[in-house]
Write a protein that binds this DNA or RNA. Structure first.
Lengths: 340, 340
DNA sequence: CTGAAAGCGCTTACAG
DNA sequence: CTGAAAGCGCTTACAG
């Protein structure tokens, strides 16, 4: 076995097989019009040299690559779950997936970088992209499907029924007897953040409880953003007896802050999240939350992208998936200890 | 704002700015020797057109791309956890990550495809790659780090202390009083599968219990592979009172089969897994397992790859990470009901 | 300080 | 059935 140092290129194969690169290309791609004898020679040279075509060179030359892209800014549980769904949908579809993860922005949010990466990939490498919780409307010549899109977007997207989910969550707290319910909002450019806040407001309105704006903290879905907000909310003399956070990541931080302040959950404080990430079942107490199937989000987005790319598109372009309330141990009726 | 259909290329920018593409390239890459006035013109043209350089074209031309690759055959929890660690290590490192996931092989295993993808990526796109549970020794001109490498590999790799972990797991069962302990092995080309079996054998030997070869099922880490093996083991008249599976995915299937056969866990059967994937805490009963920090595996592999790529390498090239036993509710002392 | 030209590894009309 | 040539979008010596 020959140990190669430089990459084996098509020219190397052509030289060994004694043909032109055009012919090698035809063999590699299974095109018609090559004699059986030549095919055999080329195949043997490929075998001998361990040749693999360069994804980059191929995709630069071809219009169609059969590679789909996924662009995400962080890689926490949410994205990981979405990814499983995407892979499931792409299983045996003939499309491979390239995930582009920007390491410099891990855990922080930076406006517009998806657009940049999208352009860098979709010009050439990918036939289409999924963008997770984008910062803005994406422009691209190739199809793009957003998961949890920007507010007001009319582009293809998949999202949970955030309004219904949030409403149910707050109604759950109301049903337990809570009247002072804090809310920690998500990044307000996203439709999901907006709808979850709407659900909060709607449920309170339905119960005849006026919204106290000082009980609303402006987070951005980044877990860390919830820490100062939760602290502010829970250190007030008239602290809320319950907090609904617009994401599990933020809700988990509320739990931490409560512990730090010596508040028992759910005795002194009830907490509800949104997402149902795996971690929410592992905390002590387990987090009551709204399940949005992230797997399903990914699955549907990939299905949609696939049909957009192949041109078989015939479904509504803005899919909304149902949510359900998962009641665990972070919620209970308010006690006398929790000031009303 | 102009809606563009064709991708904006460097030539477009050059035309608008009234310069050559060479000059545009210099501006884009911040090279010296361009007048302030020209820079301004080019910048403005880039802005106006919304130009982004093509990742593909750039990487075809350059030797260094500052993109690292990760190649994995499936995308289950194990890989997702690894990925989080990788992203953490790459955070603000200047390296982006491209994950190449082969959709046609989701959930199944196919020999040699990593090598193919590795070659396709590393010829050009990536400066180096991480390969998760590879099928063989990888050959590549660019650095490669294996997570959970092939048995006998001397290439850079990161893995858990599988021998110690497996030994501890079986000692735990032994300590509870089990004497007939089944084992479901992993894909035997992997060092991890081998060591976990060694641990099983060593622990039994230490306890003076001869290994019964009929109690060993030959799985391949694919959860489905455990189903017929567990069924065979549990339908025997002299079934084992405990089963140690070489991965959580397989252990979870053992739990399913036990339920299907009407066997209560841990009353009738104790089950231990290996990995500690998030799901293992969510089953009923929770799975006792050996924790190998998949996050840490990913983190260390990425760190190693980074230093290999930048040439700062000065650490041992085969990292072994400690494991720990996580006792949940799937293990207990054998009862009379479980035949010995 | 700037441009013309070559070339990265491929594919695809166009000839023959 | 096969090859020479052009070109995908860039970068980098080489001239000037």
């Amino acid at each position: 076995m020959i140990e190669v140092n430089a990459p084996v290129t098509m020219s190397d194969v052509a030289r060994v097989a004694g043909v032109s690169t055009a012919t090698v290309s035809r063999v590699v791609n299974g095109h018609y019009g090559v004699s059986a004898r030549t095919i055999a020679q080329v195949r043997s040279a490929i075998e001998q040299l361990g040749y693999e075509s360069s994804l980059v060179a191929t995709s630069l030359r071809r219009s169609r690559t059969n590679v789909l892209g996924l662009v995400a800014h962080s890689f926490q549980s949410y994205t990981a779950e979405v990814l499983k769904g995407v892979m499931k949908a792409l299983s045996r579809s003939g499309f491979d997936l390239i995930i582009y993860a920007n390491s410099d922005l891990y855990g922080s949010y930076s406006e517009g970088w998806e657009q940049r990466h999208l352009a860098r990939l979709s010009g050439t490498l990918t036939d289409g992209c999924i963008v997770v919780t984008p910062w803005g409307e994406m422009r691209s010549r190739a199809p793009v499907v957003a998961i949890d899109p920007v507010r007001g977007s009319t582009a293809p997207s998949v999202m949970a029924d955030n309004l219904a989910g949030a409403t149910t969550a707050v109604e759950h707290l109301l049903g337990l007897g809570h009247r002072r319910i804090g809310f920690i909002a998500g990044r307000d450019s996203l439709a999901s953040a907006w709808s979850r806040e709407e659900g909060y407001r709607a449920a309170l309105a339905d119960a005849g409880i006026p919204v106290d704006p000082t009980l609303i903290g402006r987070g951005d879905f980044n877990p860390e953003s919830a820490v100062p907000l939760a602290r502010a909310l829970l250190q007030r003399a008239d602290r809320p007896s319950a907090i609904f956070a617009a994401s599990d990541g933020m809700a988990l931080k509320v739990l931490e802050v409560a512990r730090e302040l010596g508040l028992a959950v759910p005795t002194d404080l009830s907490v509800v999240g949104f997402d149902n990430i795996p971690e929410s079942a592992l905390t002590e107490p387990g987090l009551t939350t709204v399940d949005q199937s992230m797997f399903q989000l990914g699955y549907e987005a990939a299905r949609m992208l696939k049909s957009l790319v192949t041109g078989e598109w015939d479904e509504p372009s803005q899919v909304v998936l149902p949510t359900s309330l998962v009641i665990r141990d972070s919620t209970a009726a308010p006690t006398g200890a929790a000031r009303q």
